[in-house]
Write a protein that binds this DNA or RNA. Structure first.
Lengths: 151, 151
DNA sequence: ACATAACTGCGACTCGGTTGCAAATCGGGC
DNA sequence: GCCCGATTTGCAACCGAGTCGCAGTTATGT
C-alpha cells in the first residue's frame, strides 16, 4: 500500500526547493534545466516551449523534454488555450483556471472557487467533473461579443 | 447594404437541399463532394477528415478542402474534443454542445438550453459568452471520476 | 461542344510535439 | 581529482493534423 505514486505534487516556492526536490528523485540539475527554472520563476504568465527556447536560446527538443520531466514531477503544468501551443506555468503560481477569448486571442485567469457554481451545476445535471486548468473555458470576452469576426 | 455576407446558414435537410443550395452559390457538385455529403448524411456522429478519407478512399487534401467549403457555406461545422482531430458534423444535426471525457476519450452531446444556466452564470460574473459547440466542455465522466489515470 | 471557373491530385510545407541514437555531462564513490 | 554509469543533450528524423501552390482535370452555362 506504500508503493504509491510519487506524484507528491511539489509546488516549489523557489528554485532551490525545486532543485532539492528534483535531486532527491535522482534527477540531475543540468545547466539547461537550471536556466529553464530560472526563467519560469522569473515570469508569472504561462509560456510556450517555443517562447522558452527562444528566450534562452535552447534546442526545442530539450525544452520539451525538460518541461515534460518537470511536469511529471509536479513542478509545473501546462494549459491549452483554444488552438495554439501548450503554455507552461509553475504549479506554485496556483491552480488557476483560464477563460480564453478566440476573438482577441487573450486569456484571463479565474480563481477556481468562482467557477464552483458552474462545476456544481454540471456535476448535478450531467455527472461530469469539469475543470478549466488544463483546457481553458472558451468564450467571447466582453469586448468581443457582438463582433462577428475572429476564430 | 446588400453586399452582405452570404452566410445564410443552410442547415440542409437532405442531400438534394444541400446540392441545390451549393449550386445556387456557384459551387459545383463534384463526385467527391457528392460522396462526402452522402457519407455525412448517412451518419449521425461527427467524423474526422481522416475517417472520411478512409471510408471513401479519398485523398486527404480534397476531403479537407471540401469540408472547409461546406463549412464556409453553412452546411456543416466541426468540433474539437480535447486533443485529436476536428470532427465534422452536418448543421442539420442541430447546434448541439459537447462534453468530452479525457479519461475514456468519449463525448456526449448536450442540448444547449441545458447549459444556459452555466452560460448565464459566466456572463454575469465574467462577461464572457461561452459555448461548447466548437470547443467541447472538458471533464471526467461519471465513470471516470475517482480514476486517477488518463489524459 | 466549348470555354472557363471550379475542382482534384501531388508534393511540399507548416506547426506543435515526440522519438531514436550517439555523444556529452552530471555527480556519487573512491 | 578522476572514474564510471546513469542522466541528459543535440541532431535528425518522424509524427498527426492541417494548409498551400500548381499543373492538370472536370463540371456546368451557353
Amino acid at each position: 500500500m506504500t508503493d504509491a505514486p510519487q506524484v507528491t505534487t511539489l509546488a516549489c516556492e523557489s528554485i532551490d526547493d525545486a532543485i532539492d526536490a528534483l535531486r532527491v528523485r535522482g534527477l540531475r540539475l543540468s545547466s539547461i534545466r537550471m536556466r529553464l527554472l530560472e526563467e519560469l520563476f522569473a515570469v508569472t504568465r504561462p509560456l510556450s516551449a517555443e517562447d522558452l527556447a527562444a528566450r534562452l536560446d535552447l534546442v526545442l527538443t530539450s525544452v520539451y523534454r525538460n518541461l515534460e520531466t518537470l511536469e511529471r514531477h509536479g513542478v509545473l503544468r501546462h494549459v491549452h488555450l483554444g488552438h495554439g501551443p501548450g503554455l507552461y506555468v509553475l504549479l506554485v503560481r496556483g491552480e488557476l483556471e483560464y477563460i480564453y477569448c478566440p476573438g482577441c486571442r487573450t486569456a484571463r485567469t479565474v480563481r477556481p472557487d468562482l467557477l464552483d457554481p458552474v462545476r456544481t451545476h454540471i456535476r448535478r445535471r450531467f455527472g461530469y467533473e469539469v475543470s478549466f486548468t488544463h483546457f481553458a473555458l472558451i468564450g467571447r470576452c466582453p469586448s468581443c461579443v457582438g463582433d462577428p469576426a475572429a476564430e
